[in-house]
Design a protein around this nucleic acid. Sequence first.
DNA 1: CATGCCAAG
DNA 2: CTTGTCATG
Lengths: 275, 275
Amino acid sequence: MVPPVRAIAAANVNGVRAASVKGMLDWLAATDADVICLQEVRARPDEVPVALRELLDAHGWHLRMAPSETAKGRNGVAVLSRAEPEAVRIGFGDPASDLDGRYLEVDLPGGLTVASLYLPKGVAGTDRQDAKDAFCKTFADHLRTAFDRCAVTGREMVVAGDWNIAPTERDLRNWRNNQRNSGFLPYEREWFAALLAHGWSDVVRDLHPDTDGPYTWWTYRGRAFDNDVGWRIDHVLTTPGVAAAATGAVVQRAASHDARWSDHAPVLVRLGGAG
Amino acid sequence: MVPPVRAIAAANVNGVRAASVKGMLDWLAATDADVICLQEVRARPDEVPVALRELLDAHGWHLRMAPSETAKGRNGVAVLSRAEPEAVRIGFGDPASDLDGRYLEVDLPGGLTVASLYLPKGVAGTDRQDAKDAFCKTFADHLRTAFDRCAVTGREMVVAGDWNIAPTERDLRNWRNNQRNSGFLPYEREWFAALLAHGWSDVVRDLHPDTDGPYTWWTYRGRAFDNDVGWRIDHVLTTPGVAAAATGAVVQRAASHDARWSDHAPVLVRLGGAG
DNA sequence: CATGCCAAG
DNA sequence: CTTGTCATG
């Protein structure tokens, strides 16, 4: 008997060590998600705080990590699941990024594959943008291949994390001022749109077709959070079966500035009935 | 009418920006010292916290600084005085160290010269020890010259700060274990003893001839502070006239671990009668 | 085990 | 503005 996945969350924690002493543990203890994709963990397995490890053990979570092997204290993705993964894959077969702690896939019982993604940030006009662009190019190949394979095998898939791209004008507060900034470049938006055209679903947008945002990231600089000057760059993309099962999606924005434990807020997608 | 100097303090603040938010301001507001020599300020004048600047203004302090021009965020000495300095000299004429933020002399009204010293730390057997040794060699020349000049001019002088040398076995907790460590090397102790032989007075030791310590520095590592595993490396050296006027000397060790605002404690020397 | 720097976000 | 790193103490 396979435990059902009732909800999937994505959270860029901006350093699991800092987040653990700022409230992430309370969020984890209270969440009803069955799978959580973490980004910017910025720690190796042996650097995970004891308090977090104990919480995971106490609540029966399985932790799978893909830390950066190329620069310590950077990047790093992980998947938490209440069910034990049947298989784990680090990277997507891209020698340029596989060791950077940006992509981790786990196969869960019941025919669901969940991936945690931390797409490079990029700074327009720099070599960091070139790296982001190169990542996107090879990653799109992986996503197309994976989608098509799911279509024939009947497997379902979720790719959740920090995509560092706001897909449309409604996905950031000041889109006019950001048309030349990385994360909202026209060709980045086209890249994202092509994924949806291929069949992937942006379930948060599908469930909130008429709202601005909901934003998932606010810079720490200035009063961005208090004024809700944010970007929607954390996304949950799914194959059609998961999208059809999605019954709700929320961004868990902190109640106050002081209650924040990351510059991102968790994105939670609910699947199936009220059962 | 020249205001008398009733007390002189030396304090290695280990970063004036951190110290200012950890209790140094309360100490400053309460001290009855008229001259304070600061070490490891680790800030340029424009980086001095506003709260400290306001306190100095409110209490009528004059601030003279010698920040490091060679490495930002390092070293840095300063002198605070209630009387306005008549002259200020950065360095002691040593091209190898004058721009490193290690020595600052001010001439105060009344014929008193006060110097703030931050002697290099050194690590035995490394080039950093070589740099410390070289500093000591040229600095001893300066101290001898200055002492002799005071003897003929009738001027008095105080050199206060972090000397990074424990002069005798009573000046650190575990002297046996430290005979090969920088700060307690035999030739460093001999160097210090030679200054006293020349006529300089170590007023804290003179006023506490029979006690261990009082220690002025405890490493942040382990439980050194709680167990009083410290070193007496912050010293106030004076010409004979000041030494004769010294009526008391205390190390202002924090009441608790949490009340500390530096890894060093201030050293306070009182001059003259109870008036 | 702290400091302030740095590159990155 | 915040993260974790680093050299220095």
